[in-house]
Design a protein around this nucleic acid. Structure first.
Lengths: 310, 310
DNA sequence: GCGCGTCACAACGGGCCGTTGTGCCGCTAG
DNA sequence: CTAGCGGCACAACGGCCCGTTGTGACGCGC
């Protein structure tokens, strides 16, 4: 089934006859006849009853018609999604399961109008280039360099400080703790196999480990979150670190624990990055939405890497 | 853009490399390469960055992917809508803008699960044949013959008595009336150009006209409701008849009037028709929904054609 | 440096697609 | 009754697109 045939079918259904549809589509009547015949053969049912005055939809044709229109709309949306200068707002996030993705989902609920396209770039460097080049409209990242080292015209604002938590299985010695200080984790093996070297998030966790003497273990390939959770759940000594808002699901009997850290609270500093001269209306709406919905607990004693201190 | 290319794109995106996708689709790697290249050319953007270890989605590719999946789902639904023995419930109605269509919309809201397909057949005769042959699962029609003349195995139940109203423009002599009796309409020109001869709804209006001495005018071709409303709105003497629940919209300044009829209330008797041995679960649900939601005012003095009296 | 795995380019054959030409059918006017 | 007309389908033909096989370029790892 291809969109040509479906478009032809819709044209015939609307025109009520093959030849008028052919004129509208600027092909011969015979071509329309063949396209429709091919579609009917493909679907295995007759879509029209041919009459001396045109063509009427069969019951199957009537049932198919709205779905055919859906299909064409979907094709149009798909094409529009990559059309240069498209109206969708493209935003880069580190991961679809962590806090910025939630902020975006909130924003989309609050402003359902403009289409939103969420993409993933490799790291802060790629994100800044993409924003500069207009490939994406905005990016949620942790900024590792001072503002003066950013390309001209690029603006950033810290939008969310997300607390980091310890993730353990039930057999881990710290599993029963209601909360912990980062200092209590000194020497503890922390397994984070998904850390790509050179990225800003790896820099964050490396700095965190260095500041509090954690033993960061990045060995092993990244097979995704599910195998990671599997290992953590079963291990009596391995633990991991996750953002407080990171969306994780696991079978109930794995019994994983998320333990908050306090005094200080290590927070991952998410910033929004955008180009000042980007006129996209939804970008302004996004910035206003984020500004209006900031809910950091500034009373807390927090820790961020040295590069994120002002 | 055809579904083959889109399906290939999704396969490559999921597999992460062209050759694996080729194996999965059971075509050569070169064919996959060409399909993707053609799609990229068609869209005007690169969807993948080719690497020595496979292919990574570009930002455009990431944006396109969910729309591509939508497109394939739409294609699948479209194909399923005409698959013999499909799970959708097919129901015939006289018109999409009158009462039974509303009943169906209510039912669909109450039972969003099973897909519903609304089709239009010509008249009660075609509807009974379609129900008998399994082409549709049910039909909303006025039954013009006694039950014993129906084919064996066909069941019917009266589900809605819909009052008929007078429709006039503001200049019509009766425009100011709050309600009227059918007898008051005697001799009045009633224009209903959409009445196809031989159909059960034409029989209804002809019987109504004969019973109360209306002057039914069916001249002129049917150009649709909009031109009809246009003429009625501007005419100082033409009026028309419409079902109480018929969905009509017109520009505010046309100022059309819908005038209820009383003593007796002429009602159009909608029945549901189905085949007793049709095992479709949604058909049972529909019948139960209709039985539970009957709201006829039996206290009223109603009029129906002779063939609809029990 | 060599082998391996990746994807792209080239050449070829078949089939599908659209075109023109033609036939059949039902309606309608004379 | 017949001729004309408007509607769609079938047939033949040419071009092009599609998929295949064969080959090359490129990066990585042993």
């Amino acid at each position: 089934m291809d969109t040509h045939a479906v478009r032809t079918f819709v044209a015939v259904a609307e025109a009520g006859q093959f030849s008028a549809a052919a004129a509208e589509l600027d092909v011969s009547q015979q071509a329309v006849s063949k396209r429709v015949a091919a579609l009917e053969k493909d679907l295995g049912v007759a879509l029209f009853v041919r009459t001396p005055r045109g063509a009427d939809l069969t019951v199957d044709g009537q049932a198919f018609l709205p779905h055919a229109r859906d299909l064409l709309r979907a094709a149009e949306r798909a094409a529009a999604s990559v059309r240069p200068g498209g109206q969708a707002l493209r935003v880069d996030v580190i991961s679809r399961r962590i806090a910025p993705a939630r902020l975006l989902a909130d924003f989309h609920r609050a402003h359902p109008g403009p289409p939103l396209e969420v993409v993933r770039l490799f790291d802060i460097r790629a994100a800044i280039e993409a924003v500069r080049d207009g490939v994406v409209d905005a990016s949620f990242r942790a900024i590792t360099r001072p503002a003066r080292q950013l390309p001209a015209g690029i603006a950033t604002v810290r939008v969310l400080d997300e607390p980091v938590q310890l993730l353990t299985g039930p057999a881990h010695p710290l599993a029963g703790q209601g909360s912990l200080t980062p200092a209590q984790l000194a020497g503890l093996p922390i397994w984070m196999p998904a850390l790509d070297p050179g990225t800003e998030w790896t820099a964050f966790y490396e700095d965190l480990a260095a500041a509090f003497g954690l033993s960061l273990d990045v060995t092993g390939p990244d097979f995704g979150t599910r195998p990671l959770l599997d290992v953590i759940a079963a291990s009596p000594d391995l633990a991991s670190l996750v953002g407080e808002q990171t969306h994780l699901v696991w079978p109930a009997d794995w019994d994983l624990r998320r333990i908050p850290l306090r005094d200080p609270v290590p927070v991952y500093p998410h910033s929004l990055i955008w180009r000042r001269d980007n006129p996209h209306p939804a970008l302004r709406a996004l910035r206003e939405h984020l500004a209006a919905n900031r809910l950091d607990d500034t009373s807390q004693n927090i820790w961020v890497p040295e590069w994120a201190r002002r």
